[in-house]
Deep mutational scan, measured.
Amino acid sequence: ELELEEVDLYRMNSQDKLGLTVCYRTDDEDDIGIYISEIDPNSIAAKDGRIREGDRIIQINGIEVQNREEAVALLTSEENKNFSLLIARP
């Protein structure tokens, strides 16, 4: 049973970094989820404190993420200042 949490992050300008590194968990081929492998200690996500390494990203801004490229594109989008992440953890 996964616990879901919605985390809203806000950046003042497009130079601010959310600070999330995303990856696949390669140990299970059936698991195509996108996971947070690293959080930059000086980033918006780290200061917010709710997202943890190992969390799975389900949605970004209401869009279900299917692959790492999509997640990276959404997280690094210059147009977005508000990010709503739906994350899951066991």
Results as ranks from 00 to 15, higher is better:
residue 54 G to A: 06
residue 35 Y to V: 13
residue 20 L to C: 03
residue 28 D to Q: 08
residue 68 R to Y: 15
residue 25 R to V: 14
residue 78 E to K: 09
residue 10 Y to I: 13
residue 61 N to W: 01
residue 59 Q to N: 14
residue 13 N to A: 15
residue 61 N to R: 02
residue 85 L to F: 04
residue 46 A to D: 06
residue 67 N to C: 13
residue 74 L to D: 04
residue 21 T to R: 09
residue 11 R to A: 14
residue 15 Q to A: 08
residue 67 N to Y: 06
residue 48 D to E: 08
residue 10 Y to M: 14
residue 37 S to A: 13
residue 13 N to L: 05
residue 76 T to N: 11
residue 82 N to W: 07
residue 80 N to D: 09
residue 48 D to R: 02
residue 34 I to D: 00
residue 88 A to N: 15
residue 20 L to D: 00
residue 26 T to N: 15
residue 54 G to I: 00
residue 19 G to K: 01
residue 32 I to R: 01
residue 49 G to Y: 03
residue 75 L to P: 01
residue 77 S to Y: 07
residue 28 D to A: 13
residue 65 V to R: 03
residue 63 I to Y: 12
residue 78 E to P: 05
residue 20 L to S: 00
residue 36 I to Y: 00
residue 31 D to S: 15
residue 6 E to F: 03
residue 62 G to T: 05
residue 90 P to V: 03
residue 76 T to R: 05
residue 37 S to H: 08
residue 69 E to A: 06
residue 52 R to F: 09
residue 58 I to N: 14
residue 20 L to N: 00
residue 45 A to N: 01
residue 83 F to L: 07
residue 64 E to C: 03
residue 48 D to A: 08
residue 49 G to R: 07
residue 85 L to S: 01
residue 89 R to F: 01
residue 14 S to R: 13
residue 49 G to K: 14
residue 87 I to F: 03
residue 42 N to Y: 09
residue 7 V to T: 02
residue 52 R to G: 04
residue 12 M to F: 08
residue 14 S to Q: 04
residue 35 Y to A: 07
residue 70 E to N: 04
residue 12 M to K: 11
residue 82 N to T: 12
residue 18 L to W: 15
residue 53 E to V: 12
residue 13 N to F: 07
residue 66 Q to E: 14
residue 58 I to V: 13
residue 77 S to A: 08
residue 88 A to Y: 08
residue 44 I to S: 04
residue 31 D to W: 04
residue 29 E to A: 12
residue 8 D to P: 02
residue 57 I to G: 00
residue 81 K to R: 06
residue 83 F to G: 01
residue 43 S to V: 01
residue 90 P to D: 05
residue 80 N to H: 14
residue 84 S to R: 10
residue 23 C to T: 09
residue 51 I to R: 00
residue 49 G to M: 05
residue 51 I to N: 00
residue 16 D to T: 12
residue 1 E to H: 04
residue 69 E to M: 13
residue 67 N to Q: 14
residue 7 V to C: 00
residue 42 N to E: 12
residue 88 A to L: 04
residue 29 E to D: 09
residue 20 L to K: 00
residue 58 I to G: 02
residue 62 G to D: 13
residue 47 K to W: 05
residue 40 D to C: 10
residue 49 G to E: 05
residue 30 D to V: 06
residue 45 A to K: 00
residue 34 I to K: 00
residue 43 S to W: 03
residue 9 L to S: 00
residue 47 K to L: 12
residue 51 I to V: 12
residue 4 L to D: 02
residue 9 L to Y: 03
residue 2 L to H: 11
residue 25 R to K: 13
residue 25 R to I: 15
residue 83 F to M: 04
residue 7 V to I: 11
residue 16 D to W: 03
residue 63 I to A: 09
residue 9 L to N: 01
residue 63 I to R: 09
residue 9 L to G: 00
residue 62 G to A: 07
residue 63 I to S: 10
residue 82 N to H: 11
residue 15 Q to C: 07
residue 40 D to G: 06
residue 10 Y to E: 15
residue 47 K to V: 05
residue 66 Q to G: 15
residue 72 V to A: 10
residue 34 I to V: 12
residue 72 V to Y: 09
residue 53 E to A: 12
residue 16 D to K: 03
residue 67 N to L: 08
residue 18 L to G: 02
residue 36 I to A: 04
residue 69 E to D: 09
residue 13 N to K: 12
residue 24 Y to F: 07
residue 69 E to P: 08
residue 26 T to I: 07
residue 83 F to H: 08
residue 44 I to V: 10
residue 61 N to F: 01
residue 6 E to H: 06
residue 87 I to Q: 01
residue 7 V to S: 00
residue 24 Y to Q: 13
residue 75 L to H: 01
residue 19 G to P: 01
residue 33 G to P: 08
residue 2 L to I: 09
residue 90 P to Q: 08
residue 38 E to P: 02
residue 82 N to M: 04
residue 57 I to N: 00
residue 31 D to I: 05
residue 63 I to W: 05
residue 14 S to P: 09
residue 50 R to S: 08
residue 80 N to S: 12
residue 39 I to T: 02
residue 88 A to K: 15
residue 38 E to S: 08
residue 63 I to L: 09
residue 27 D to F: 06
residue 23 C to G: 12
residue 47 K to D: 15
residue 81 K to H: 08
residue 25 R to P: 15
residue 31 D to H: 12
residue 44 I to A: 07
residue 69 E to R: 07
residue 55 D to V: 03
residue 17 K to N: 08
residue 60 I to Q: 00
residue 2 L to N: 04
residue 84 S to T: 07
residue 30 D to F: 05
residue 68 R to S: 07
residue 24 Y to H: 13
residue 83 F to I: 10
residue 61 N to C: 06
residue 30 D to K: 11
residue 54 G to H: 06
residue 71 A to S: 05
residue 36 I to F: 03
residue 75 L to T: 03
residue 33 G to Y: 13
residue 16 D to L: 09
residue 62 G to F: 02
residue 38 E to D: 08
residue 18 L to V: 07
residue 69 E to L: 14
residue 34 I to H: 10
residue 4 L to M: 15
residue 21 T to N: 10
residue 34 I to T: 09
residue 85 L to D: 00
residue 17 K to T: 09
residue 59 Q to P: 00
residue 2 L to C: 07
residue 17 K to L: 11
residue 46 A to T: 07
